[in-house]
Amino acid sequence: MNTRDADPGRGNGERGSPGAPAAGVMSKLVSRVRFTAMQARVGVLVLLCVFFTIRSPFFFTSTNLVNVLVNGAVIGIIGSAMTLLLVARQVDVSVGSAIGFAGAVFAVIARDYGMAWGVVGAIAAAMAIAGINAVAIIKFRVNSILTTLATLVAFRGASKLVMDGRAVRVEGFRFLGRTRFEVGGIEIPVAVIVLLLVVAVFYVLMRLTKYGQQMYAIGANPQAARLAGIPLERQVGIAFVLTGATVALASMIVVSQVGAVSPTTGERMEFLALTGVIVGGASLYGGRGSVIGTLVAILILAVLDNGLVLLQVQSFWQEVSRGVLLLGAVVFDQLGRREAEVRMDV
C-alpha cells in the first residue's frame, strides 16, 4: 500500500476561507441526532429498570441484575460480531444453528474423547460454518442473507444428525457457564466477564482501527471503498471468521450453562441477536451501528424479559414487546434517514 506523504507545500499562497459555517452547524445537528438516539436507548433502559424496581421487590437485587446480565451474555457476544457484519452491509442469520451445531459437536466429542477435544471440535465446527458462509458470499457472490439462511437450515439438521436427534448431557464443564468470581461482594459469572471482554474487543476494532474504519466505508459506499483500493472480500471474510469465533465461544457458554445440548439449542438466537443489533442502531443498509448501542439494546431486551417474568405477565407478551421494540427502532431509523436525505438537498 502506498504510504506516500502528502505534500503540503503544493498550492499557492491564497488561503481558503475557514469553511462554510452552514456545514458546521449541520454536522453538529447530525451528531446531536446520533447522540440523542444513544440517549434514547439508555433512557429506555433506565426507565424500564425504574419501572420494574417500583413494581417488583425482586428486580433491583444483585442476584437478579446478575441474572439479567447472564441472560444477555450469549446474545451480546454474537450480537457484537453481528454489529460488525451489519456495519459492512452483511448479515449472518446462521448463528443460532451454528451455536447448536458447535454445541452438538462439542457434546458428542466431549462424551467420547474428553473435554479438551470437545473444545477443539466446537471451534472447528463454528469455523467450518463461518468458512462455508464466507466462501459462498465472497467467492460465489451470493447475498449474505440467502447464504446464511441456507446454512441456518442445513446446520439445524446437521446438529440433529450429530446427536442422533436426542439431547446429549455434558458433565463437568462448568467454567464458562457456571463459575462466578466474587467482586466486591457481588458474584460475577464468567459469562458476563466474557461478554464485556468481547464488547471491548469489538469496540476497539470498530472504532479505533484501520480495519474498523474500512468496514464502515465498505458498508456506507462499497463502490467508493473498492475504488479506494480497500480489499472488500478480505475484510468481509475476516468479519465472518470473527463471527465464527464468537459462535464457538457462545456455544460453549450455552453448553456449560445448561449442562446439555438438545436439538433446539441455539434456536432463534439469530433473531434475538439481530433484534438487539437493530434496536442498537445498526442499519441493514450498512455504515451505521456500534457495539455499545448493541450492548445497551440487548440489556433493554434482557431487562424487559426479566421484568415481565417477575411481574408474572403471560410470557407471550415478551415476544410482543420485543417485536414492538424492533418496529419502533426501525421506524426511528427510517425517520433519521429521511431527515438526512432532506438535509442533503439543502
Binding site: A6, N12, R15, G16, A20, S27, V30
Partner: peptide, 24 residues
C-alpha cells in the same frame, strides 16, 4: 495533514469536521 493540504488550496473549503453527507 489533511488540514495543511486543505489550507493550501485556493478553493473555499467546507468545514473539515463536517461529514460529506451534509455537503452540496
Amino acid at each position: 495533514r489533511a488540514r495543511a493540504a486543505v489550507e493550501a488550496l485556493p478553493a473555499r473549503f467546507p468545514n473539515l469536521d463536517a461529514d460529506i453527507e451534509t455537503m452540496s
